[in-house]
Nucleic acid binder design. Structure first.
Lengths: 219, 219
DNA sequence: GTCTATAGCTTGATAGAC
DNA sequence: GTCTATCAAGCTATAGAC
């Protein structure tokens, strides 16, 4: 028999897990509290008991993941060796930024699967900028931008900002695992093969950052 | 006094314009038919009269733009000179792909503004892949992938697919105009300055495609 | 902490007058 | 083609029993 505290933990997390899952597929407005509780197998009123409102439930879904993510990224940065040649340092630092979003082992990769898709879904919307990105993600993004700026000696900070945003756009689209690359490649590439995806995006984005200064864009 | 046909055209397009606008901000589920008709200044029941269902209205919002977009992109490709050096050809072909989404003059840029944001919103969702991208956008994407593959002699088609998807991820995020690059650059960059954005993304993505084959990604 | 029951509102869609 | 009126269903949130 579960005691009160263990039951609370179990119900709370069942709601959070199910909410994260449905939000990541149908969006926040496309997911009703009823659908969440039905699929989680708990009573409708328990969402309001634990989280007050649907909005606060969504906030909790995010907060639950975001602290760990930021800590891991900062740790990766603190341990980073900036004396390395930039041709190898840039790929490394991008990989360090990506890894906490993917996970270190099979379990973690699976655990973060719905979270990744949810982040992808809100990344291209202006609505969630203040709620999510401004406070939770921007401070760490700024650290990485400064680090990359230090490593790439021939770019302005503004250009590094553009570059990092383009990189984030590629990344958020890739973790959405839309299956589009599968179709376009006639099955040769697989959007759910995250190991390969990470290798490809690191190569692509590093090449972009290292060489964008030398491209002529006059048309 | 307007005749019947002119009135129909006017009401239909007022609904389409308003729907496109609200969908692009709040998403499909976050926008009610009532909100659309209220803001458009037309009666609630006219949505069902002209479009039957909300889903079909959304479909019409997309279809209205997509044919022009595809035609322009194919035309750009047909006129393309493939004998040029790849270092200048790659930036050029990427620019050709982007331009129809932005518009040729101030009016077009403004007219397509909401459409761009709507596309950005659905691009990172698996839900809309079949409805929108598979049939409306993939055929043209394949043409551009093959063209880029032809130009970049040292990449596999699979790698070009990954690259083009990363490019599309950057692009869809950029046209969302989330304002994030503004914050991260402390105001030096501006996400609504599309001219600059296009120059930057062309440089970034061309560098990526031209040089990704030479990056070592071992960690 | 979990349940039933329900209030109060918004939703998409339609029937029928003009 | 446009309007009023309305339906049936779904929604978030809450009050109160256990």
């Amino acid at each position: 028999m579960l005691n009160k505290k263990a039951s609370t933990q179990k119900t709370r997390e069942k709601i959070l897990d199910t909410a994260e899952h449905l939000f990541s597929i149908y969006g926040i407005d496309g997911t009703s509290v009823r659908n969440i509780t039905r699929q989680a197998g708990v009573d409708l009123s328990l969402v309001n008991y634990y989280f007050n409102t649907k909005d606060q439930l969504f906030e909790e879904v995010l907060v639950r993941r975001v602290a760990k993510m930021s800590d891991a990224r900062i740790e990766q940065l603190n341990e980073f060796n900036f004396n390395e040649d930039k041709n190898t340092a840039i790929p490394k630092i991008l990989r360090r930024f990506i890894e906490p979003l993917i996970g270190k082992n099979e379990n973690e990769v699976k655990e973060l699967s719905n979270y990744r898709k949810l982040i992808a879904l809100v990344a291209n919307s202006k609505l969630w900028q203040d709620v999510i990105f401004k406070y939770h993600y921007d401070p760490i993004a700024e650290e990485y931008i400064d680090a990359i700026w230090r490593l790439s000696n021939n770019l302005s900070r503004e250009d590094v900002c553009w570059a990092f945003n383009f990189f984030l756009g590629s990344l958020t689209n890739a973790i959405a695992e839309t299956g589009r690359v599968d179709r376009l490649s006639y099955g040769d590439a697989c959007s759910s093969d995250l190991d390969t995806m990470v290798n490809k995006i690191v190569a692509y984005s590093s090449a972009a950052i290292l060489h964008m200064g030398n491209i002529k864009t006059t048309h």
